[in-house]
């Protein structure tokens, strides 16, 4: 086993300090009894209590979770189909356009995605709200979901599917009994990625939402613009904790899958 030199250890420590210190500071100050960020007034969970009484914020959070759930499910279903189309049905007409459209949202500035979808909804004269944001989020996380599933499908032993066909399974039965169970961890990971992308998005939601559908990032954004407050720190801490749990669950899932396929 090779040893890391002092320079490389420094690089690791400095790099991770840069990544984590701001977040740790944010978490620490959510437990500050004092309202002033400069003063440490002792440990307190006061701000979490205050948060629980902040009904608009709780409403926004609940809305964001429902929205993320639906849009992640749609994005994962479509992303999985898109991945199958790209990996399995290699050369169909318009493949270049299709691949471009799947991947473009990954690189597209969010302001453009948001603006263009809003203009679509306006010209179609659709009432904006929960469902328009859901469609927008599903569209832009579709590409991310597709990439996750695609990498899994690319390493898939096609003879497994052929064996199923050979043993009498129709293409659809083959998909349900062989393909899907085997790509399942990637599908789950894609769903979680789409879920957090939706939960995190401010810009696209701001463009495509309507009255009565204010998401959590939108609420946080307007609060943050007004300045720092321990209550926001508390809200952020809860979100960080939730995301950390999801990520750990996801990586455990993927690890178990790697062990199983090894």
């Amino acid at each position: 086993m090779k040893r890391l030199g002092p320079g490389l250890i420094m690089a690791l420590v400095a790099g991770f300090a840069f990544l984590y210190l701001p977040i740790l500071a944010l978490i620490a100050y959510s437990f500050n009894a004092s309202r002033l960020v400069t003063v440490w007034g002792g440990f307190s969970t006061h701000w979490y209590g205050a948060l629980m009484a902040n009904q608009p914020l709780l409403d926004a959070a609940w809305l964001s979770i429902r929205l993320a759930f639906v849009s992640a499910s749609v994005a994962t279903a479509l992303g999985t189909l898109a991945a199958l189309a790209l990996v399995r049905y290699g050369a169909f007409r318009g493949r270049t356009l299709f691949a471009g459209m799947v991947l473009a949202p990954l690189l597209m500035p969010e302001v453009i995605t948001g603006l263009s979808l809003l203009l679509l909804f306006v010209s179609a004269q659709v009432e904006r709200g929960f469902w328009t944001v859901t469609i927008a989020h599903a569209t832009f996380s579709l590409g991310f979901a597709c990439i996750v599933v695609q990498s899994r499908l690319a390493g898939f032993d096609r003879s497994l599917e052929e064996a199923a066909r050979d043993l009498g399974a129709t293409p659809i039965v083959t998909f349900w009994t062989v393909t899907l169970p085997l790509i399942w961890p990637a599908v789950a990971a894609a769903w979680m990625l789409a879920f957090t992308l939706s939960l995190d998005d401010l810009v696209i939601a701001s463009f495509t939402t309507g009255p009565g559908a204010t998401t959590l990032p939108m609420r946080l954004y307007s609060a943050v613009r007004l300045g720092v407050s321990p209550e926001i720190n508390a809200a952020c801490t809860i979100m960080i904790g939730a995301v950390a749990l999801v990520v750990i669950a996801a990586s455990l899932l993927l690890k178990r899958d790697q062990l199983a396929s090894a």
Binding site: L12, F16, L19, Y20, P22, I23, A25, L26, Y29, V37, T38, T196, L199, D200, L202, P217, L220, Y221, V224, V228, I232, N233, C236, M239, I240, V243, A244, V246, V247, S251
Partner: peptide
């Protein structure tokens, strides 16, 4: 180490920016 690099990416963008406001603002951290 890889998970440690990815983890901040999964936390909200807004939260990460907000954390820096607390650090950089006058009389901040």
């Amino acid at each position: 180490l890889l998970v440690l690099v990815i983890l901040p990416f999964w936390t909200s963008f807004l939260i990460r920016v907000y954390a820096w406001i607390g650090i950089l603002r006058p009389e901040g951290l």
